[in-house]
């Protein structure tokens, strides 16, 4: 079973390459620890499957899949789906944070302008935030 043909060699080399790439990325701090573990585990599983293909057969058998590579495709597809969903969630959170930051930058810049304009100007346009503390205002 295992150890026949170029495909075997190819999968082993590719999964080994992936493993090395991930370790290197972690070493160079290009991958956050949070995701590093996930990718390390993924690469390891791929490597084990590539080296010992009887595991794939066993897995397929356990799942009731007759054509063993289908089991791999199924798992890979589900894994990618979950990963994509996770990315979209993260992307949404990031964009929410970017919006907040942009708003904050705009508001802070406005405040800087007010402070730079000096107290005379501020009183005239009553833009001093401390005005907000007063009960009434000349409207």
């Amino acid at each position: 079973m295992s150890g026949n043909g170029a495909v075997y060699l190819l999968t082993v080399v590719v999964s080994l390459g992936l493993l090395c790439l991930i370790i290197d990325l972690i070493r160079r701090r290009q991958l956050k620890e949070k995701y590093a573990l996930l990718w390390l585990a993924t690469a390891l599983v791929l490597f084990v499957f590539a080296v010992k293909r009887s595991l794939v057969e066993m897995l397929a058998g356990a799942l009731g899949i007759y054509y063993a590579p289908s089991a791999l495709f199924l798992l890979g597809f589900l894994f990618m789906l979950a990963l994509n969903l996770q990315y979209t969630v993260m992307l949404s959170r990031q964009s929410e944070r970017i919006i907040r930051l942009a708003q904050e930058v705009g508001l802070l810049r406005r405040r800087l302008e007010e402070l730079a304009a000096g107290p005379g100007d501020v009183a005239e346009t009553h833009s001093d935030p401390h005005d907000a503390c007063g009960v009434t205002n000349e409207v």
Binding site: I99, A102, Q103, G106, R110, P129, A132
Partner: peptide, 27 residues
């Protein structure tokens, strides 16, 4: 008075900036 956003946020983000200003300054 002008608040300049560093890049285009879209109508929701722009309007919300105004509400945040209103909250901060106690309108």
């Amino acid at each position: 008075r002008v608040v300049e956003l560093p890049f285009n946020l879209g109508i929701g983000g722009a309007v919300q900036t105004g509400y945040r200003y209103a909250l901060e300054y106690g309108y």
